[in-house]
Design a protein around this nucleic acid. Structure first.
Lengths: 104, 104
DNA sequence: TTAATATATGATTATATGTGCATATACTTG
DNA sequence: CAAGTATATGCACATATAATCATATATTAA
């Protein structure tokens, strides 16, 4: 593994290492949405949502489509779905094990 | 998705969002190793390697086994393998597409 | 052209994180 | 018990990142 490769992988993970960005990605799981829609759904400020979308774009995770005044973002990398499922699954498992060990 | 769940997922991704930690994980892919071995393999300082191992432990990603003076760490969550493969695969694909678009 | 709307961005501040140095802790051996 | 070895941790510093506010940049409509 070269230093450059490790850096790229780290950057990809870093893009997913922020609750608000995960919320935005989650909102995009059922199809692309405008910035305005994402602001409403996420409850964040317009500026902050725009910044996070920019970060996800830089990470190569999103698609961007401009239509008139609006900009529509969508999931641009299919691996995101699997990544999130994997982590959620692993955490659920850990949580249920923890619950069991508390119970006995 | 609750706020707490998003926070947990973000923390898991954050654990993987650092080149030195990825290097350590990579070194552990073929079995558990002591801190000293990891220091030698990674080229980091002892203090820094120890800190990163602690971070990965907190994230629930590693196992820890103390034998005499030494402490052996290992991969404690199978999903890590798949996560890294997925990201590497996605980046390779992106890279090859980029190479192609430069070529034509 | 002017006004109105959607999105992006500069500047600032607060917080988090990575690193190195020195030292503490835990364990083993003589 | 003293000395030596492996690992962990307190402290300090530099850097990165997220959030907010105000404002800039499109684009459309009147």
């Amino acid at each position: 593994m070269t230093d450059a490769a490790l850096g790229l992988v780290a950057r990809r993970f870093a893009a997913l290492a922020e609750p608000m960005r995960l919320r935005l990605l989650h909102a995009l799981f059922d199809g692309e949405k405008s910035v305005g829609q994402l602001v409403a759904l996420s409850g964040g400020t317009q500026a902050n949502v725009s910044r996070h979308l920019q970060t996800l774009m830089d990470a190569g995770v999103l698609t961007r489509r401009k239509v008139g005044l609006q900009v529509f973002y969508g999931i641009g990398d299919e691996s995101i779905f699997t990544l999130c499922e994997l982590v959620c699954g692993s955490l659920e498992q850990k949580h249920s094990q923890h619950a069991k060990s508390l119970a006995r």
